[in-house]
Design a protein around this nucleic acid. Structure first.
Lengths: 144, 144
DNA sequence: CTAGGTGCAAAGTATTTGCAACGCT
DNA sequence: AGCGTTGCAAATACTTTGCACCTAG
């Protein structure tokens, strides 16, 4: 890791109020160097090459810490368990970043319509599934 | 269940090419009667009241069957495991309904910008996370 | 020095699978 | 009758936790 990279990471940790450890530096660096949407196991593999003694649990803890601190994001805020849509109308989701609740909003009401079209890379778009991330009324109150 | 409901369900099963069983009828009916985004356990509870001998495994199998057949949708196509965003730029996701792959598309390129605003119900929108559902180039080929 | 971080192993949760018995068509 | 479906129990996958030791500040 270059001096610049180390300083950058130090600044990130200071901002988050967490300690700078060797493990965290390596996880940070590996994440920065990866493309796509790696799972904890996929992060663990290259990290373990550089720190053979590291445990998967530490990688999990570190990833969560980075997400809580806003250093990285997770792909889906509601990835936990399988959930079934009971609402058959075209709609999108209001996802509260405070309490993680999900409520529905009609597609029309949000003003983002579906649009079958070709996108760059030859991807054929069929429909949009929009998560509107924000704060529900209750969480706005409790934060004020 | 009314005669009409039973016929409706029979039509659904015929269209999907699956057998009409008592278990499936009850799971279908319970899902139709629920609001929100129930987990398999939450579906299992009321179903078990009506069919005490049913197993959770059957509820899982039935829900998956309904999703594959297009009878119900799942809330997130990529809910499986924790995934980290390594792309720091504002972007959205192209999710292939064929192979489940996820690739990124810049927010600008998609033409759906962020917009902090108040929505009905007092929800304070901070940003959008858009999944564009469709078929990637490879899956379009293999389906033709 | 000491609060916070780490590694290990065990526990927890969510989901899937193999298989014998059973029920729809 | 025959094949798909069910229930059970065991297996698997993913993630978290308790605790003794270690390390950054």
């Amino acid at each position: 890791m270059t001096v610049t990279e180390a300083n950058q990471f130090r600044a990130v940790c200071d901002a988050a109020g967490i300690a700078v450890t060797h493990q965290r530096q390596v996880v940070y660096q590996v994440l920065k160097s990866m493309n796509g949407h790696p799972s904890p196991e996929e992060v663990y593999a290259p990290v373990k090459v550089r720190i053979p003694s590291i445990s998967l649990a530490t990688v999990y803890k570190t990833i969560h810490l980075f997400i809580e601190s806003g250093v990285f994001r997770e792909v889906s805020l509601h990835h936990g368990t399988l959930r079934v849509e009971t609402n058959a109308r075209p709609h999108h989701h209001l996802v509260c970043i405070g309490c993680k609740s999900i409520s529905d909003i009609d597609a029309e009401e949000l003003g983002i319509g579906a649009a079958a079209r070709k996108l760059p890379g030859g991807f054929l778009a069929k429909r949009y599934a929009v998560d509107v991330l924000g704060l529900c009324a209750d969480c706005q109150k409790s934060l004020s």
